[in-house]
């Protein structure tokens, strides 16, 4: 039996889709997004979202968001029992449209940041964070 590069790639993509798909149909997160965007289109890109690839503990996961010129950025944890995390509203004296915080993730999942840009359009970025389960948990 042989694995071609193409087979392996297809397999990887399939696995990636499997991890992401269940969250796409999360009604609560759809509602939260609609409440933020008013149903407007959300484009990919233009938003920076920094999160660890692997979090040592889901209870305290450091993240940073930023989108130049944004008036607000909403952060969602798509796999949490309630997906809302925080919404950062940047004021007149914000030195930049960036912020960092620490969040709780109930398990491996997709973290999403949606920015409301100055012109009223919306942009998003997402990042998958693997949450590890400790060895003995002591």
């Amino acid at each position: 039996m042989e694995f071609s590069r193409r087979d392996t790639l297809a397999l990887g993509l399939g696995a990636a889709a499997m991890t992401v798909l269940p969250f796409r149909v999360n009604a609560a997160s759809d509602d939260a997004i609609t409440a933020f965007t008013g149903g407007a289109d959300v484009t990919e890109g233009g938003v920076d979202l920094t999160a660890p690839e692997i979090a040592e503990n889901g209870n305290t996961v450091p993240i940073s968001v930023g989108a130049e010129g944004a008036s607000a950025i909403m952060v969602l944890a798509m796999g949490n029992p309630t997906p809302g995390v925080a919404t950062f509203n940047f004021g007149e004296l914000a030195g930049s449209q960036t912020a960092s915080t620490r969040i709780r993730l109930a398990g491996t999942q997709e973290v999403v940041a949606i920015a409301k840009m100055a012109d009223g359009s919306f942009a998003r970025a997402s990042s998958e964070v693997k949450v590890t389960i400790g060895g003995c948990g002591g």
């Binding site: 039996m1 087979d7 392996t8 297809a10 397999l11 990887g12 696995a15």
Partner: peptide, 16 residues
Amino acid sequence: MKFNAMTAIAAVLFSV
């Protein structure tokens, strides 16, 4: 593609 499921899963796991 002819490889079996177990091998496929193993391949994904080891690629993490």
